[in-house]
Design a protein around this nucleic acid. Structure first.
Lengths: 318, 318
DNA sequence: GCCATTCATGTTAGCGATATCATTACCATG
DNA sequence: CATGGTAATGATATCGCTAACATGAATGGC
C-alpha cells in the first residue's frame, strides 16, 4: 500500500519510506500496471476520440487540441479514425468502450442507432464536435457548417460576385461537406442569385488533385463562372493550380475560395480566401468539457452546447 | 466461462448457448471489460507508437500505416506525439509502458538513456523507424536520411546545377533534418562543388511560412544560387511561393527541390522535385514486424533491419 | 455393454493494483 | 499517566476476467 500511495503522490508516505520505495523501484525496474490499477479503482485514465481522418490537417489539429488538454490532467487519448464511415465508427465505439474510457469525443452528429445505444448505456460523458447535431447525444462543441458556408457566400456576394460554383465530394459520406453544400445553396437562393453550379467529385477527403480536376469541369461546363467555392482549402488549392496552369488570372478571370483556413491557404500565391473554424480550439474545448464532467460527476453538463467561432478570412484570391 | 469463450469466438461453444449468450448480452447491454481480461490473460491488445508530430502528413501517413496493419490483427494503437523532443518521448514511453503494450514503435534512433533502459527492461519488441540508428535497440524499419539527401544532390548535379543552397531548421532537435543536412554537405564535398549555402531557420517542423522567409534570406545573401534544396516539401513550397511573389521564374532563375513527396509537391505549379520515402509503408512494415514478433515469440527477430526505398522524383521545379 | 474419445460446460484460483478498515507509533494535553 | 488525536503503515477483500483443470454428456468402436 505504501508503494501504491507513493506512486500516486499521496502525502501519507514519510520521506524515508518514499525514498526507499523509489530506490527499490529503480533497482528492480518496476513499472506500475495501470490495467490492474484501473480494475481496482474503476478509473482507467482513458479518453476515447474518433475522427474521420488523421491525414487531413483540420482533424489532426483537433486531435492535437484534445491531447494537449488531456495531458494536463494525466489522461491518455485513445484515438481512432474511421474514413468518414458511420459503420466503422460503430465498431470503433464498441472496441473502445471495452477499454472503459472515462469519456468519448466524436466528430459530427450522425451515428448508427447501435452506436447511440451503446453510448447511452455506457454512462460516460460524450462530446460531439464539428457540427450542431439535430439530436445531440450529450454535450456538443461545434458550429453550423451550413451557416459557415452561407456566410462565405454572402461575404463574396457583397463584393459583387453573382455566378457561383461549388466544388465538393459526392455527398454520401461526408456529412459536413453535405451541410456546407446545403448552406451554399440556401445562401444563393436567399440572395436571389443565379442558380449555383455544383460539381461533386470523388469520395472525401477531396484531395488537391481532385480539386484541380473538378475545377477543370467547372471551367468547361460554365466558362463564365465568377467565383468557385471549394469544400476545403486543399481542393481550393488544387483548383487554383489548375487555373494557373491554364493561364487564368486569379481573381480577375475567376475567383476562388476555400474552407478550413489550412496553412496552405495563407501561404500560397495568391493567398486563398477561406473560413476559419478554430479546429485546435474545438479539440481543446471538447476535452475541457469532458474533463469538467469527469471531475464533477455530481452536476453533469448534459446537452450543453459550445458554439465555436467561424470567421471569413478574405485574401487575394477573391 | 462460456460467455468468455463465446466473445473470443472460440469454437468450443454450442450454437444454442452462443445464441442465448448474445441475446442476454444484447438485453443487458453488457460490454466486455478488457482491462480485467488483460490482467488475467497477460495480453493487453495494445501497441504503442510515438511520432514527432501528427500534423505533419508524413508522420500521420506512418501512423495510418501502423493502424491499418494493426487493425487486421485486432490490436489497438496507443499513439502519442512528442514535438521532436526526446524528453517528452521519455515520459511518454514511461506512461505507455504502464499500459503494458505488446510492442512499441518509435521514430528515429535517438533516445534518452532512461528511455533505452526502460525499453530494454520492458521485454517487448521495439521497432525504430524513419532512420538507421547507430545503436539499434531492437528492430529497425527505415532509411538513411543522409543518403537520401545525398542522392537528391547528386541527381541535380548531373543536370548541371553547381551552386546549391540548403534550407532547414536549427538543428538541435530534428535529428532527421540534421542528417539530411549532413548528407547535403557530404555530397557537395564529394562532387567537388562550390561550398553549400546553408540557411537554418526556426524549430521543426519547418512551416511553409518559414520556408518562404528562409528563401528570402538565400536570395539576399547569395543571389546567384542555382538551386535551393529544402528539408521538406512544405518549406520547399513556401520557398517556391516566395520566388513567385518576387517574380522569379522557376526553375530558370532558381530551381527548388524538397523532401518527403507530400501531396502538395505533386500538385502545385510548377510541381516540385522531391524524394519519396514511402511513409505509409514504413508504418505498415513496422507494425507487420511487431506483429510477427508478438505472434512468434519463440524466435524473436532482434536487430533485424528493413531498409525502405528512397526515390528521387524529378519534376518541373528543377 | 463397456471404455475411450470428443465436445460442451463448470469450478477454482489467480492476475496486480486500490478501497477500506485496522493497527501501530508517537506526541500533546490536562 | 491516561486519553485522544494524528501520521504512517499494514491486512484483507475485491475489481472482472481468463488459464487451467475438472466434470458431465454424448458418441462410437470393438
Amino acid at each position: 500500500m505504501s508503494v501504491s500511495r507513493a506512486l500516486k503522490n499521496s502525502d501519507l508516505v514519510s520521506q524515508v519510506t518514499r525514498e526507499r520505495i523509489f530506490k527499490a523501484i529503480d533497482e528492480l525496474g518496476y513499472v506500475l500496471d495501470l490495467s490492474a490499477g484501473s480494475l481496482s479503482s474503476k478509473r482507467t485514465g482513458f479518453v476515447a476520440a474518433i475522427v474521420p481522418s488523421i491525414n487531413n490537417s483540420n482533424f489532426s489539429d483537433t486531435a492535437r487540441g484534445i491531447t494537449d488538454e488531456l495531458e494536463k490532467t494525466g489522461l491518455q487519448l485513445l484515438l481512432a479514425y474511421n474514413d468518414y464511415s458511420a459503420e466503422r465508427e460503430e465498431s470503433q465505439i464498441e472496441a473502445m468502450l471495452r477499454r472503459r474510457p472515462e469519456g468519448i469525443i466524436l466528430t459530427g452528429g450522425i451515428h448508427t442507432d447501435r452506436s447511440r445505444r451503446m453510448l447511452e448505456n455506457a454512462g460516460i460523458p460524450v462530446v460531439e464536435t464539428w457540427d450542431l447535431p439535430a439530436k445531440p447525444i450529450d454535450q456538443v462543441v461545434g458550429f453550423s457548417n451550413a451557416d459557415a458556408m452561407s456566410l462565405l457566400v454572402k461575404t463574396l456576394a457583397t463584393k459583387g460576385y453573382r455566378k457561383f460554383a461549388y466544388i465538393g465530394g459526392t455527398t454520401e459520406r461526408d456529412t459536413r461537406g453535405n451541410q456546407r453544400r446545403a448552406g451554399f445553396q440556401s445562401a444563393i437562393a436567399e440572395l436571389g442569385l443565379p442558380e449555383g453550379r455544383v460539381v461533386s467529385f470523388g469520395v472525401p477527403p477531396i484531395s488537391m488533385e481532385q480539386g484541380a480536376q473538378a475545377m477543370g469541369s467547372v471551367l468547361s461546363q460554365w466558362p463564365d463562372t465568377e467565383v468557385a467555392i471549394c469544400v476545403s482549402d486543399l481542393s481550393a488549392f488544387g483548383a487554383l493550380m489548375e487555373c494557373q496552369r491554364r493561364g487564368l488570372k486569379i481573381p480577375k478571370d475567376i475567383a476562388i475560395a476555400g474552407f478550413g483556413n489550412y496553412e496552405i491557404a495563407a501561404c500560397c500565391h495568391p493567398r486563398i480566401t477561406s473560413v476559419d473554424i478554430e479546429c485546435y480550439e474545438i479539440g481543446r474545448l471538447a476535452a475541457r468539457k469532458l474533463i469538467n464532467t469527469i471531475q464533477n460527476p455530481e452536476h453533469p453538463s448534459r446537452n450543453e452546447l459550445v458554439l465555436t467561432n467561424i470567421r471569413v478570412i478574405e485574401r487575394e484570391s477573391t
